[in-house]
Design a protein around this nucleic acid. Structure first.
Lengths: 226, 226
DNA sequence: CCTACCGATCGGTAGG
DNA sequence: CCTACCGATCGGTAGG
């Protein structure tokens, strides 16, 4: 939406005592122009800090400072620290779900083993690739959510897990996957999710190496790929 | 804080003044001499709260109240909240290490698959069985440790992981374990450790069911058990 | 181990 | 989004 007043570009100049603001309704203008960017920046900043320090150990002042704001400003974008955490998780979960759905669409008609490889690769990318703070926060900080928030996230998580079930079931039927499907899903996702704790992009194996190892570990060589 | 003002000034004059406060606490005097019990109770209480709420979200007042103490009393036993966390982790790690060493001693000479089964069963018992708050705290709260504490725990963790390596290496050589040993160890322990997040003793499978599923998932049926 | 307390910090808010 | 601020809480301590 075009702004009616040509406000000067947001700069990092130190606020002076007599900074001149456009007349009229600068608040609305600023909000419409900046809200999306600032909100997204807050989300990314909060995700990074929540991941590295944990939710309870991260202060809203930490987040504000890292985003270049003053201490009270995050509350202009989010009602509470809790709401910020929830937004991080929701955003991460929606993005992860969308990526996996795309992956499966691209592998439609392929054998189950190839589909599982795709799911595993995308899961590792979501956890460990670029912009990968959101899902780890969701995985390791959900304790801090209230009941309603947890229920809303649980719906997204169920959708995510449901993507895996037909693939695992097919592999179980073919004999390539030997554990019961339900427990196999929990154990496999656990093995992948734990990589957040030890993966180091600077020295460990690549994400493809990881995916190959996981596939080799979980599915027997007995089932031909096609 | 309620206004408890107008307290009589501390005896500025005669040390022989009557004690303002009535003497005698018949309930506790003897028991609380037992430092070992109270310290152990604090550890168990702290472990349970750290597990369920997280370290940063648990106050020393929470712990004191759950242990039947006043708010300042935990600091009689532990120098800081941080030291209490570290003691929980160290205690848990030592106990886990001792249990796994016993397990392997009892399975000495048995085939690698039987040894892996023992390691997995004991690991699940340590994570999910009775008195199983210590290791989950170590797994999920180590962020809060300082560098020295982390280094000391890392030594114990290395010992623990080293118990698995020969067993996994033997299974890899025999072909039962198809992933590289190093990544297999990380993925397997991740799958087990994640069970803390979903295992429910009241409705899910038993610990033995879990162990069987994990074994079936990780090691191929190709290698005979003996 | 308790009482009484402190200094620092934190989430959040009013008003601009 | 900033300034200025509040009420509550928290880890920790002195002294008994």
């Amino acid at each position: 939406m075009p702004a009616s007043t040509a406000a000067p570009p947001k700069s990092l100049t130190a606020p002076s005592a007599h900074a001149v603001r456009p007349r009229g309704r600068p608040r609305k203008t600023l909000q419409e122009r900046d809200d999306g960017n600032r909100r997204a920046a807050l989300l990314a900043t909060a995700a990074a800090l929540f991941r590295s320090q944990g939710f309870a150990a991260t202060t809203t002042r930490d987040i504000a400072a890292a985003a270049g704001m003053q201490s009270g400003s995050p509350f202009y974008h989010f009602k509470s620290k809790d709401a910020l955490l929830f937004a991080v998780m929701q955003e991460g979960m929606r993005a992860a779900l969308a990526r996996q759905q795309t992956t499966l669409q691209q592998l439609a008609g392929q054998p189950p083993l190839a589909q599982l490889r795709g799911l595993v690769q995308t899961h590792f990318a979501v956890l460990l690739g670029p912009d990968s703070d959101f899902i780890p926060v969701m995985l390791y900080e959900s304790r801090a959510l209230n009941v309603a928030q947890r229920a809303e996230l649980a719906a997204l998580q169920s959708q995510y897990e449901a993507l895996w079930v037909p693939v695992l079931a097919a592999l179980h039927t073919s004999g390539a996957l030997r554990a019961p499907v339900g427990l196999a899903r929990l154990l496999i996702l656990g093995a992948l999710n734990w990589s957040v704790q030890w993966f180091d992009p600077h020295k460990a194996a690549s994400l493809d190496d990881l995916s190959d190892a996981a596939l080799a570990l979980f599915v027997g060589p007995g089932a031909p790929a096609s």
